[in-house]
Design a binder for these strands. Structure first.
Lengths: 93, 93
DNA sequence: AAATCTTACGGGTGACGTAACGATC
DNA sequence: GATCGTTACGTCACCCGTAAGATTT
């Protein structure tokens, strides 16, 4: 598993397009497209249905998103906690 | 942030040694040692105190571990969920 | 034709294992 | 001297951006 892939998935899920997700992530479209494809291959699930020029989230994608968001939130919290600890340390002097 | 670093941290925390953690992770000792060092550098925190031939978890390390474990559990759950979805799909046929 | 997603390709960064070193039991 | 953790070094895979292709509006 890989955090970047999860972050890309969240961005595409929320924006509904690879282009918008790439903008949010400060990346190019091909890079985001690959991350999604790699994640689908790793999971063995089709998270998005390629219809026309848009990626429509599948039923599996929606089920997966709920859990993925929890994991990403937990990881984000880790960084916050670390910063809090550092700040606390700094105040001790 | 990086999942491998967190997994290495958990393994060292629970086993109390780099060697045991490396065995559990199917990696070499230097690789695990680097992951721990990289994580500490990234967080700006000293997670373990190098005493004698053992790594003793610091106060900061213990505080951080609680949150890290939650994140890792959430990630582990993702994989499980994905497998469940695949299994369910398979049963539909 | 402009926009979107995907695939191909080359370059740079990072991770790993082996080897070597210092310290401890 | 055996074990443990760290550092050095060479190699290899992975990830990204640019370029090119296919499809849609």
């Amino acid at each position: 598993m890989n955090l970047k892939r999860l972050q890309a998935f969240r961005a595409v899920y929320e924006t509904g397009s690879v282009t918008a997700a790439a903008r949010r992530l400060h990346m190019t479209q091909p890079a985001v497209s690959r991350l999604i494809g790699d994640l689908e291959k790793e999971l063995g699930l089709q998270l998005f249905a390629r219809q026309r020029q848009r990626l429509v989230c599948t039923e599996d994608g929606r089920s997966f998103f709920h859990e993925a968001e929890r994991a990403l939130a937990a990881v984000d919290q880790i960084v916050d906690i670390a910063r809090d600890i550092r700040t606390l340390k700094g105040q001790q002097f």
